[in-house]
Design a protein around this nucleic acid. Structure first.
Lengths: 195, 195
DNA sequence: TTCATTGTGTAGCAGTCGCGACAATATACC
DNA sequence: GGTATATTGTCGCGACTGCTACACAATGAA
């Protein structure tokens, strides 16, 4: 019965995601966003309701694409230990990608007072981080039960440390990034944790 | 020969710092800032020239007060190793302070695309971080020469890892903070690094 | 006192903000 | 074809952005 959507929603969302990724949540205003998406106010508010909602959709889109690759790196490795190292390799690949709108992961960039002030955004971000966290804990505990990690290895403590370190990495990369140095630091860091 | 400043500059700067700290660089607009400082446009632009310049002054003020306490924690300890642990304790104290405008360190909160886009702000931030970094390396190397740390201890690699972890800590605290957990994680983290 | 110098308040500029009203348009079922 | 429904572009609202021009007030030196 209704009229069909005139613009390519998937393509528009991808462009929106890239702009948010480049300029940040607070730094992105409506007009440039519309221009990047190639649509007008009418279409935007018809489909996306508000800026906040649009940002949330972009976060979901980001997680379904870039985030999914990280999950894959973590899970397709033979062991949890190898998975964690593969995850870091994937992160370094992102940092090396010259086509990315920003060095910082869009998710990590959202860990800010401004973004977290929106309850629905905060809920989603907290959810996604704890999802990743719990998955990592599960894999490492499996390693442990298989005898690949010592019995006194405390996955529930180590994983938050890793997540915290990753958060820091995204930020530090904004200041100065050198792959070789990062690789060495990651190795020393993980080795220290017994991984 | 000139007219004297009518308002208390130090007090106004303190208030400005607190507002920037609370709302962030991009989130703080001129009018509320003026209200917090208790002055008008005339006085503001006469003394501070621009918003960017004001933010820089606030960063300097923050470093001279809060930042200085962290430096003290690092340096007044008997050894570098103890200094690092004291630094983390100081950070946790900040996270526990209910009167702070925000959980995140103002400096760490400035490690953002938006802030770093301003060359003068970026220069200052990079400078301060590398100052802290080099000081920490020096202290740990002194420990090493005194035989308190093993000869293969690589301060130049370990210190950036610590800095990175601290950056991550400020962000993670925005999501959920529990002192006991953080303390345990810090302990495991530092112990893993040989500290 | 006179005068140069600087601080302060007011008013307003030109632009942008997110958002909604609205008419025109295109679709799909009857 | 008629009609209900949904998408689209345009226009503009009211509020806010950082910033500046300008008149005026206060100061201290001559």
């Amino acid at each position: 019965m209704p009229r069909t959507l005139e613009f390519n929603y998937a393509k528009a969302l991808e462009q929106a995601t890239r702009l948010f990724w480049k300029l940040g949540y607070a730094g992105t205003s409506l007009r440039p966003l519309l221009k990047a998406m190639g649509i007008g106010e009418g279409s935007f508010y018809n489909k996306l309701k508000s800026m906040d909602a649009a940002y949330l959709e972009c976060l979901k889109h980001y997680n379904a694409t870039v985030g999914q690759r990280r999950g894959k790196a973590l899970f397709s490795a033979p062991t949890g230990q190898a998975g964690v190292r593969a995850l870091f390799k994937e992160i370094l690949n992102c940092l090396d990608n010259p086509h990315a709108p920003s060095k910082v992961c869009l998710m990590a960039a959202s860990v800010t007072g401004e973004v977290l002030a929106e309850p629905r955004l905060k809920k989603f971000i907290v959810q996604e981080i704890s999802k990743m966290s719990e998955a990592m804990i599960a894999r490492l505990k499996a390693d442990q039960q298989a005898g690949l990690l010592p019995p006194d290895f405390d996955a529930a403590t180590v994983v938050p440390i890793i997540i915290t370190y990753i958060q820091g990495q995204w930020r530090m990369a904004l200041i100065s990034y050198n792959r070789a140095q990062f690789e060495k630091q990651v190795d020393v860091f993980l080795t220290g944790l017994g991984l």
